[in-house]
């Protein structure tokens, strides 16, 4: 019983998060401007991180936590650097 509930819920949430990644990817490709693409990349990172957490629940292992943490930190660094680049044309002044 509980296995059925969990399997269905994990499947539904993975489909939703996958759809979220597709929408973010569409915005990433469409733009129109660089800041739209960076914003789309940021939410692509976020959806991917949450997707990894659902994979972790699906497999019953906590290893996925580390991957999600690393993705979360990477998204911060990547978006901050890209935003800085958009503003000044260089990352480190």
């Amino acid at each position: 019983m509980s296995a059925t509930i969990l399997v269905i819920a994990i499947l539904v949430s993975q489909v939703l998060l996958g759809g979220a990644m597709c929408l973010a990817g569409w915005r990433l490709l469409k733009g129109p401007r660089a800041q739209d693409r960076v914003l789309a990349l940021d939410s692509l990172y976020l959806s991917g991180m949450l997707l990894l957490l659902t994979f972790g629940i699906g497999s019953g292992q906590t290893i996925y936590f580390e991957a999600a943490l690393v993705i979360g930190l990477l998204s911060f660094v990547a978006t901050a650097a890209l935003a800085k680049f958009l503003m000044r044309g260089e990352v480190i002044e």
Partner: peptide, 17 residues
């Protein structure tokens, strides 16, 4: 919790698009 969180995130990216 999982379905609610995933749905909210999905609606957020719908807004993004």
């Amino acid at each position: 919790c999982l379905v609610a969180g995933a749905a909210i995130t999905f609606v957020g990216t719908v807004g993004l698009a």
